[in-house]
């Protein structure tokens, strides 16, 4: 079985839970083994993870991002996997957050029993840590309310376009 799933119910509004998931740089605070995440572009994250003494780095493309509903990504380099996290409002201050990791495309090493077991354990712990983190804070550390569909960004209507020079560069 190369699918890992885990759901947690968190005692914050769906907007708060979703907004926190848009703040990739904060993931190391609750995801074990994640040392750093850079978010150089809306659709791209660069992950640095550590298992024992071994450091892995990989790029992941965010292919879908719908406010208060869903986030989906796929890695562009090894270890290959796809992931989604969905948000279901259970009430004004309660949300179900469900994570699904599909490791089908992973290499043989990542699919061995011990590696899968480790990954599953980390995912479960990570989701519990997220619950602890967001309930402890009570509010998100930041947000981006734009959308991504099929890798294409639709801007956050509240933020608009970034101010940059648009004149021709020769």
């Amino acid at each position: 079985m190369t699918i890992i799933e885990k759901s947690v119910d968190v005692d914050v509004p769906v907007r708060t839970a979703y907004n926190q998931w848009t703040q990739f740089e904060s993931f190391p605070r609750f995801l074990e083994g994640v040392e750093r995440i850079d978010h150089p572009e809306r659709t791209l994250t660069h992950w640095v993870t550590r298992v024992g003494a071994v450091t892995h780095e990989f790029d992941a493309e965010i292919v879908e991002q719908r406010p208060d509903e869903r986030l989906a990504w796929r890695t562009l380099t090894e270890p290959r996997h796809e992931g989604t996290v969905t948000f279901q409002s259970l009430g004004p201050v309660r949300t179900r957050v469900s994570l699904r990791l599909d490791l089908t495309a992973c290499g043989v090493v990542e699919k061995t029993g011990s590696a899968l077991h480790l990954a599953r354990r980390r995912v479960h712990r990570g989701m519990e840590s997220f619950k602890e983190f967001i309930e402890g804070h009570g509010r998100e550390t930041g947000c981006w309310r734009g959308e991504i569909r099929s890798g294409r960004v639709r801007p956050d209507p509240a933020q608009g376009s970034p101010p940059v020079p648009t004149w021709p560069t020769g």
Partner: peptide, 25 residues
């Protein structure tokens, strides 16, 4: 100059829109 003119007219920004990571992947 020709690139800037064409990109400004068609995309609204006179510069390229790719990063090094885009090239890699």
């Amino acid at each position: 100059e020709s690139s800037g003119a064409a990109l400004k007219e068609t995309l609204g920004v006179g510069k390229g829109d790719v990063s090094l990571r885009d090239i890699h992947h």
